[in-house]
Design a protein around this nucleic acid. Structure first.
Length: 260
DNA sequence: CCTATCTCCTGTAGGC
DNA sequence: TGCCTACAGGAGATAG
């Protein structure tokens, strides 16, 4: 579920609620995540103070006292709640400053205590610009959308926002990355930033089934504003099409009229 | 290195 | 109604 705007929404809530608090207890769910939480990560938790909560791409990073970090990823279906009575799919929980923080994850794809992989620039940073993107796409035969989804190219973009940004940039998702012109790369860069900023402002995307809720239990409101994703007609009014083959394993919608 | 495919899970929607 | 299949917003491993 969560892409950059959803993770950022969670980060802000976590930072507001548990920053400066000391972790007094934790519990691993049964079953826990698909990937076990390393014991060396758990052994550091108790007694550590949460100095801040940060984000890199789709990863949450709890900066702990004594210089330790706890890196978390919400996977495809993960969410976080505070002091909730909900016990379904709780894979990990901790208590900080008397507040109980639960990580829910039905599909168990999430991870806690993992290492941060090699990631491309933050899409909202100055380092993600036309020059950079053009260089990253140059010479590649993969679909431009596959490159946007590649976290080593740019960190935090997933299927929803890649779909939206390509639509606004007028580029078909299946276009060979190396065939994206300089002007198009510049446009794409701007649209990625814009769609992410808008989604953060709206508190993330909520779709019908796996409804994203922030840790305060509020749904995201971005679904009201998607132009392509989850729609039959684009914002332009044209009928949307799916690419013949999925890209990076994801179904990919586009407007055959507006996107080239 | 690059690219495409498979896989880890569970829940849900839609077809019959 | 129930059963079955396909699919879901991620990403690491692997094979070519």
């Amino acid at each position: 579920m969560p892409e950059l705007p959803e993770v950022e929404t969670v980060r802000r809530a976590l930072d507001r609620r548990v920053r400066g608090r000391v972790i007094t207890a934790y519990r691993v769910g049964r079953p826990a995540f698909n990937r076990p939480i390393p014991t060396r990560a758990l052994s550091r938790l108790k007694g550590s103070r949460i100095e801040s909560v940060e984000r890199r791409g789709k990863y949450l990073i709890l900066r702990l006292s004594r210089g330790w970090d706890l890196v978390c990823h919400l996977g495809m279906s993960g969410s976080i709640s505070f002091d909730s009575v909900e016990e379904n799919h709780v894979r990990f929980r901790f208590t900080a400053g008397g507040r109980i923080v639960k990580m829910h994850d039905p599909r168990r794809f999430g991870r806690v205590g993992c290492a941060l992989p090699k990631l491309g620039p933050e899409p909202l940073s100055a380092g993600f610009n036309a020059d950079y993107l053009l260089g990253a796409l140059r010479g590649r035969s993969a679909a431009v959308k596959a490159c946007l989804l590649d976290q080593a190219v740019v960190a935090g973009v997933g299927n929803i926002y890649a779909t939206e940004a390509l639509y606004h940039a007028g580029i078909r998702p299946q276009r060979r990355a190396g065939a994206v012109s300089r002007a198009e790369a510049a446009r794409l860069c701007v649209e990625v930033k814009q769609v992410l900023r808008r989604a953060i402002r709206m508190g993330g995307t909520t779709l019908q089934d796996q409804a994203f809720k922030d840790p305060e239990g509020r749904p995201g409101r971005f679904s009201l504003r998607t132009a392509v994703y989850g729609r039959k007609l684009g914002a332009c009014g044209h009928e949307l099409k799916a690419t013949n083959r999925p890209i990076s394993g994801r179904t990919s919608l586009y407007c055959p009229v507006c996107q080239r």
